[in-house]
Design a protein around this nucleic acid. Structure first.
Lengths: 339, 339
DNA sequence: CTGTTAGCGCGTTCAC
DNA sequence: GTGAACGCGCTAACAG
């Protein structure tokens, strides 16, 4: 590769000293360098396409304008990717770049990743989880400013930013309650997932406020689960609406309903969760959107502000979920009800 | 943040000079430093959790162990994400990190991105396109080793790695020819997309070799296009199989077939393209997989090998596409044929 | 076998 | 208004 152009080259071409170049290009030369020399320097820099070597600059400034990101699963996953893309966009607006390392949910690799990013002198660290998880930051995490995205620190030491899952549960409930449904079953996901408890809590809150029974049925996360468990529920409980653990389960319920000759939404309303980009719109599924984009963007904004001296929030930040209304929900038809 | 530990600290704790630390930790101290001192150094380093400041090391070594990636669309897109994830994985295995910048298909941003990555002293540059495109690298691109992924340089100056689309067309053709179909229509995508011409060429080749007519029908890329154009084709030409521009079009053809009471695959075989992770498996669609993962991984391997002194390939590298057989193809039923 | 020294390119301070 | 000198932390050449 051809020799890189340095500040010395610019200085020579402009007929000034290297320090003058540095001052002018950093906007600090106004009282120190003559206007004509400033102009000469700028021209020389442009002519040589000079860009300061940011490695040298980082070493000198003790700041790399780089945010390290540790993510627990493929950075290209649908949801993780959205958070990281949003964070990256905000970072770019502030001339920051991201260094993303995938830990593949392996604790050792995670530790290594943090070490690596610290050695690379990232100005701050970010941990991004695909699904809301408790996360104990490695000790070294606290040496630099850090933020948890879609994760929370049980010890409360690190700040977390994540979606308000309880409110998400309320939104899901509203989607059916507002249309007058009273016979509703909630096929919820496995309770090892933290978000499930919160969603159920929000869901329960709305139903109890409406004086309606809360009917919970444990279910999995896949199409098959929705088809199987959903089918059983349709047979045994004849609900007018089903609120599902996610959009895949909702897809399964769609199939189970079709199999029984039930039309959606005329005979059965279905609510999903996640707003899966490849599923929800396609099925016309009303669903609840987890604010992945907001999380990534907001986390990055918070982190960058912090680097500018703004103190971090003292408590975790919960971002609102949004209901997306499509054609899978309607008012319940007048049909036979149980007792 | 607590003061970072440097080689000087390690040297003091071990009671040796800083250069001894550097040598030992870089494995270059075997003939130069006494075993006991080596041990002392290693212990001191471990005790202090010393990690060399890689910014300083980069400045000194004129190498950052970083690959810059410019991508023309959201790095989290289904396919771009897969290529970058694969590249990232291979890079990590060699202790390289990726700096990814999204140009949003904007030529100016693209130029800025290249400048930025060069200023950051990336050891090499990679351009990743979501769909196969001709791409004229900015002049500065050539200052560093560089590689185009899913893109090719019309001027032939930069090396490209991409899927063999012509072979993909052949695979799609084989999917139906091998099962004995003779009345086949190819709903191809808009010809502004480079890959389309190549796929048609491969498709044509197989059909002409079999002595069968090549029936091409221009179509778009969306579900609606498949539904509309596919429906018309089913009505007017009664093919026993349809080969589609992509999986979304194939989904549209599924709908059109269902509407006409045609069962898949009994009455109609359908072939998609792309192996869309959210569509193909779900619909049981036989399709042709574009080797995104291979492209990313292979490109990174090639680039890293080049940094180790291995010369780059002299001609573009085309990676084979793979047919994925699912239940949407079967032998044609014996039914009325046209003259 | 060890320690001293000279930069990598930049930003800043301090004499001129 | 300007330019020489220093140091960020590291590696490698060279003298002891």
């Amino acid at each position: 590769m051809g020799r890189k152009v340095t500040a010395r080259d610019v200085a020579e071409l402009a007929g000034v000293s290297r320090s003058a170049v540095s001052m002018v290009l950093n906007g600090r030369g106004d009282g120190d360098v003559s206007p004509e020399n400033q102009e000469a320097i700028r021209q020389a820099a442009a002519q040589l396409r000079y860009r300061p070597n940011s490695v040298a600059r980082s070493l000198r400034n003790q700041a790399t304008h780089t945010i390290g990101v540790v993510t627990d699963s493929v950075a290209s996953g649908t949801y993780g990717g959205a958070m990281i893309a949003a964070a990256s966009r905000v970072a770019a607006e502030h001339d920051f770049l991201l260094l993303v390392v995938d830990s593949h949910k392996d604790a050792q690799l995670e530790q290594d990743a943090v070490d690596l990013l610290q050695a690379r002198q990232c100005d701050a660290l970010m941990f991004v989880a695909e699904g809301l998880v408790p996360w104990q930051p490695p000790a070294a995490f606290h040496d630099d400013p850090c933020l948890l995205v879609n994760a929370f620190d049980p010890s409360g030491r690190a700040l977390g930013i994540y979606g308000d899952e309880e409110q998400g549960g309320r939104e899901a409930a509203r989607l059916v309650l507002d249309r007058g449904h009273r016979e509703v079953v909630h096929l919820h996901g496995t309770t090892d997932v933290v978000a499930v408890g919160r969603r159920i809590a929000g869901y329960r809150q709305k139903f109890e406020a409406a004086g309606l029974p809360v009917r919970l049925v444990p279910c999995g996360w896949e199409i098959d689960d929705g088809w199987e468990v959903g089918g059983r529920v349709l047979d045994e409980q004849q609900p007018t609406a089903v609120v599902c653990a996610n959009d895949r389960v909702a897809a399964g319920v769609h199939l189970a309903a079709a199999q029984r000759g039930l039309r959606i939404p005329e005979d059965l309303s279905v609510v999903g969760y996640d707003d899966d980009p490849s599923l929800a719109a396609q099925l016309g599924l009303s669903t609840v959107q987890i604010p992945f984009d907001d999380m990534g963007a907001q986390a990055m904004r918070t982190l960058l502000a912090h680097l500018d001296g703004v103190p971090l929030p003292t408590a975790d930040v919960e971002l609102p979920s949004r209901a997306v209304v499509r054609r899978s929900v309607a008012a319940p038809a007048a049909r036979g009800r149980r007792g």
